[in-house]
Design a protein around this nucleic acid. Structure first.
Length: 277
DNA sequence: AGGCAGGCTTTTA
DNA sequence: TAAAAGCCTGCC
């Protein structure tokens, strides 16, 4: 059986921009053209060739079942960008044009819940290392297509199998008790993340905030990145700065529904790029 | 009720 | 030494 899928993706698809957009913390760049992507219990190598084709190191069946949905390849991001009125909103238009290639991955809601609980008050490299420590501490050890080991993202019961000391050794700090509480909510209290996929946005955020250690920001990240609610709008320090400086008279959320989350992602990446250069 | 200060682990620059 | 894709608690 053929074990690679090669595609030329004409719609927005930029590995570097996705990797740096702050929605995924288990991607690693192997070399200039290749990423190793961990997602739940799966691992995938993706290579971008000089002729602009993408090579996914998996079977066609795996691609169709796992990776096509993961990369949200059935969504047309170009048409979502085209809805922005350049005259009315030049900042967002510039952000979307410059950051085109970002997509909102369809990640696992449990993985997103734990990851974004861990993310609070941490920089991206610190988030990555803490998540990796947690996976190594209690996730299932597996081997990728190159024969190298990796760890699946742990389930709630795997996390609950850790002692408080073991959990704290994952550099979680005060977030350790939040991660444990989330695992208990799912495993023992019947907190149903899957049911929230179909819930409306208001109820989704309300339900998520009931979890210990989950506030408005983390709830919106879980909604956007884990439940693929494209209207969720995570407000962090950067977005608040953007809204204050670029939209002193208010941001037109209503006219951008149901794509507020996607536009937020363009603005976030664009603003951060400008700060670093 | 809803807003706000202060504290919290650890890493990073 | 301060700041970092925040949240909880206590106080008003």
């Amino acid at each position: 059986m053929k074990d690679t899928v090669t595609l030329r993706i004409t719609d927005d698809f930029d590995l570097d921009r996705i990797a740096n957009s702050g929605q995924c913390f288990r991607w690693s760049r192997i070399d200039a053209d290749t990423y190793r992507i961990l997602h739940g219990a799966e691992c995938l190598y993706v290579t971008k060739h000089s002729d602009d084709t993408l090579c996914f190191a998996c079977t066609q069946a795996q691609f169709d079942a796992i990776w096509r949905p993961y990369f949200d390849l059935d969504e047309d991001y170009g048409s979502i960008r085209a809805r922005i009125d350049r005259e009315k909103d030049p900042f967002l238009w510039d952000a979307a044009a410059y950051e085109s290639g970002i997509r909102i991955l369809r990640q696992d809601p449990w993985e997103m819940l734990v990851t974004f609980i861990i993310s609070q008050r941490k920089k991206i490299p610190a988030i990555q290392s803490a998540v990796e420590l947690l996976c190594a501490a209690c996730g299932e050890k597996k081997y990728d297509t190159r024969g190298l080991p990796y760890y699946a993202f742990p389930s709630p019961d795997e996390i609950l199998s850790l002692s408080a000391e073991e959990l704290n050794s994952c550099a979680l700090g005060y977030r350790g008790k939040y991660v444990r509480a989330a695992a208990e909510a799912v495993l023992l209290d019947g907190f149903d993340l899957e049911k929230l996929r179909e819930a409306d946005e208001r109820n989704t955020i309300t339900e998520l905030i009931r979890l210990y250690g989950v506030g408005n920001k983390v709830a919106n990240c879980v909604s956007l990145f884990g439940l693929h609610h494209s209207d969720a709008f995570p407000r962090d320090v950067w977005i608040n700065r953007i809204l204050a400086t670029e939209y002193p008279n208010g941001y037109p959320f209503a006219s951008y529904s149901p794509y507020n989350g996607i536009y937020q992602q363009y603005m976030f990446a664009y603003y951060r790029h400008r700060q670093h250069h």
